[in-house]
Amino acid sequence: MPDLLNLLTDIEGVSVGHATDLVLGSGVTAIVFDEPAVASGTVLGGAPGGRDTSLLDPSMTVSAVDAFVLSGGSAFGLDAAGGMQAGLRELGRGFAVGPVKIPIVPQAILMDLLNGGDKDWGLHSPYRDMGYAALKAAAKGAFALGTVGAGTGATTATFKGGLGSASAVSSAGHRVAAVVAVNALGSATIGAGPHFWAAPFEKDDEFGGLGMPDSTDHRMRLKGMSVPATTIGAVVTDAQLTKAEAHRLSLAGHDGLARALLPAHLPLDGDTVFAASTAKHRRDDMASLMELCHLATIVTARAIARGIYEATALPVEGAQKAWRDRYPNGG
């Protein structure tokens, strides 16, 4: 296997692509599977936005997906899945219904309409074309983090949000990784300082190596009391999972979200985590599943901190400052 990049693409058979528009202040991230992947997901925020998320329930018939899409644009961004479906249809991908193939592309969106970008797009939103572009850009190997793709216009209570990713390997050799677009009502950092709530899980100084502060400030910090937010992401493993087991993996991803953001899962958050298995490696025991859930929690928390750490401010007047703007020397 190739060396780990600490990214979602460490999972064999997974490609990631971005469409980024800094003037719009928004973007789309495509997560594409070489072959249909067993998938599920959970929504724990009170104000979610998504497409084809109901089919991810373990009781529903379709068990596998061709891709996931994460997008800005709030409800307008739901057009991105249509663009990705168009690209997948060109490739002959999709769930077969007689002679017809229907690409299965569950989507989650985040609210980034108030970040100062130019949202005067006219009659039709740009997200269908951006979804298509993100699919066409999807590739193996390294991909950008921070103010890119679905993380382009993301914000949090304290610093500019962004897109992060992280990966890990289980004791059985199974790989698990997360990608998250961090657009939280709450904060990924502790108090007014540079330290991250996810610090106990950090690996190789991936978000600054600052550790925990001498004391912690638990006071609630929100970017607003009436503006919807949403942190969205996906956890993927190469271990063989059933749809019900993938559902459990998505819940473990939410555990990581709650460890990296304070507060989380609020009435105006739409926090959504997808999960998928490429089934490249056999797994059939409970112990390995429990370890994968443990690691899903950790990689999701790390990905969230990396999304903030790697972000840069949007090039618009009044844009929220990034962590690196406030701490150019690393905190």
Score class of each variant (00 low, 15 high):
Arg219Glu: 14
Asp325Arg: 06
Thr158His: 12
Ala108Arg: 00
Leu266Ser: 15
Arg326Ser: 13
Met290Trp: 05
Asp79Gly: 13
Leu249Thr: 03
Phe207Ser: 02
Thr297Leu: 12
Ala275Ile: 02
His124Arg: 12
Arg175Ser: 04
Ala301Ile: 09
Arg128His: 10
Gly141Val: 10
Thr155Tyr: 07
Arg283Asn: 15
Leu314Phe: 05
Arg175Leu: 08
Val65Asp: 07
Asp285Gly: 06
Leu222Asn: 09
Phe68Met: 10
Met286Glu: 15
Arg324Glu: 07
Pro194His: 04
Pro36Gln: 03
Thr297Arg: 14
Gly27Cys: 07
Leu55Pro: 01
Ser15Ala: 13
Gly162Leu: 08
Thr20Ala: 01
Leu268Thr: 04
Val179Asp: 06
Val169Pro: 00
Gly193Trp: 09
Thr156Pro: 06
Ser277Gly: 11
Glu35Ile: 00
Asp271Gln: 09
Lys321Leu: 15
Val62Asp: 02
Ala177Thr: 05
His195Ala: 11
Asn183Gln: 05
Gly141Ile: 11
Arg302Leu: 12
Ala276Arg: 07
Glu291Leu: 08
Ala81Gln: 14
Pro200Asn: 08
Ser167Arg: 01
Phe201Tyr: 15
Glu310Arg: 14
Ala67Tyr: 05
Ser125Thr: 10
Lys321Ala: 15
Lys136Gln: 13
Val227Thr: 14
Thr230Val: 06
Gly92Ile: 10
Lys136Gly: 00
Thr189Met: 01
His265Lys: 07
Gln85Thr: 12
Leu257Cys: 02
Val38Leu: 13
Ala313Gly: 11
Ala260Glu: 10
Asp129Phe: 11
Pro328Ala: 03
Trp121Ser: 05
Thr237Asn: 08
Leu5Tyr: 02
Gly98Leu: 08
Val169Glu: 14
Val105Phe: 03
Phe201Ala: 12
Ala239Cys: 13
Ala80Ile: 04
Ile190Val: 15
Val43Ser: 10
Val65Phe: 07
Trp121Pro: 01
Asp79Gln: 10
Leu266Lys: 07
Ala139Tyr: 00
Met220Val: 15
Tyr127Leu: 05
Leu88Ser: 01
Ile109Val: 15
Trp197Gln: 05
Ala276Phe: 02
Asp112Glu: 11
Thr297Trp: 01
Phe274Glu: 02
Ala181Leu: 10
Leu185Ile: 11
Gly122Glu: 01
Ser71Arg: 01
Thr42Trp: 05
Gly162Thr: 02
Val38Gln: 05
Thr20Lys: 03
Gly193Ile: 04
Ala137Asp: 14
Pro267Thr: 04
Ala244Trp: 05
Val169Lys: 15
Ser187Trp: 04
Thr158Ser: 14
Ala276Cys: 11
Ile31Asp: 04
Met84His: 06
Lys321Ser: 14
